[in-house]
C-alpha cells in the first residue's frame, strides 16, 4: 500500500486518507456564464503532470493539499491549505436585478 505524508500526522498508509478532488478555483457563480459554470462543475482539466489535490486524513479529520504527479504517481509535497487559502472568502450579495 502506498504511503502519503500528512503534514500533521506524518507518513501513513494511503488507506487512512480520503481523496477530495483537484484544487480548483471556482468561477464567480454570479457573473460567470452558464458555459463557464458547466466547465467548472463537469469538466475538471484532468491533465497529466503535477496537480494539486485535496486529501483528508480521516482519523484526525485534517484536510491538506498534496502536489502529485499524475503520470508517475509521485507525491512532490504536501502542505496545510492555509498556505494558499490565506484570507477569509466572502460572496457578494446578489443584485436585485439578477434575482
Amino acid at each position: 500500500m502506498k504511503m502519503l505524508c500528512c503534514p500533521l500526522n506524518g507518513p501513513r498508509n494511503v488507506a487512512e486518507f480520503a481523496f477530495g478532488g483537484e484544487v480548483r478555483e471556482m468561477p464567480d457563480p454570479q457573473t460567470c456564464s452558464d458555459r463557464e459554470w458547466a466547465e467548472y462543475v463537469f469538466y475538471p482539466p484532468n491533465h497529466a503532470g503535477v496537480i494539486a489535490e485535496w486529501w483528508l486524513h480521516v482519523p484526525s479529520g485534517y484536510w491538506f493539499i498534496a502536489e502529485r504527479n499524475r503520470s508517475t504517481d509521485e507525491v512532490i509535497r504536501t502542505y496545510d491549505p492555509s498556505e494558499i487559502y490565506t484570507t477569509r472568502v466572502d460572496f457578494a450579495a446578489q443584485e436585485e436585478s439578477k434575482a
Binding site: 483528508l56 479529520g61 484536510w63 492555509s82 487559502y85 477569509r88
Partner: peptide, 15 residues
C-alpha cells in the same frame, strides 16, 4: 456532510 463542511471551510476560513 462533515467532510464537505470542513473541506469548504479550509478554503473559506470562516470563524
Amino acid at each position: 456532510v462533515y467532510r464537505a463542511m470542513t473541506q469548504w471551510n479550509a478554503q473559506w476560513r470562516l470563524d
